[in-house]
């Protein structure tokens, strides 16, 4: 299982965080869980990359943070998308689609 873990590139991690937050506000632990579960346990967002990325996005104004009680009564810092974040997500998504199509075209040329 360990071998299946893929190191996420910085830009990709930002996009995945934004994508996760598009469903609604979430804390850091929740985001990490969502990415792992959503990728079938393939993608792991290391805390050492996740939190710097969250704080960077917050500083850039793509997400905003708020302290709230979790469903289990735990006080946690919840992040949510800002309008600028939504725009960034759309742009990243478009770029990723273009890129993956291009890579797919190269790796598996049409028969």
């Amino acid at each position: 299982m360990y071998q299946n873990r893929i190191e996420l590139l910085q830009g990709t991690l930002d996009m995945l965080i934004l994508r996760t937050l598009a469903w609604g506000s979430q804390h850091g632990y929740g985001i990490a869980n969502a990415i792992r579960a959503g990728s079938g346990d393939v993608l792991h967002a290391e805390t050492g990359s996740l939190y710097p990325a969250l704080h960077r996005l917050e500083k850039q104004g793509h997400v905003k943070a708020e302290w709230k009680q979790s469903e289990k009564g735990q006080r946690a810092k919840y992040y949510s998308l800002t309008p600028a974040g939504r725009k960034r997500l759309a742009a990243e998504h478009a770029r990723w689609k273009q890129m993956s199509a291009a890579i797919a075209g190269l790796m598996e040329p049409a028969q």
């Binding site: 850091g28 805390t47 946690a76 810092k77």
Partner: peptide
């Protein structure tokens, strides 16, 4: 302190799961 609490919350949620 804020960052510290954020990390501690992460640990507690992971442990409780």
């Amino acid at each position: 302190d804020d960052l510290n609490e954020e990390i501690q919350a992460h640990l507690q949620m992971a442990a409780s799961d």
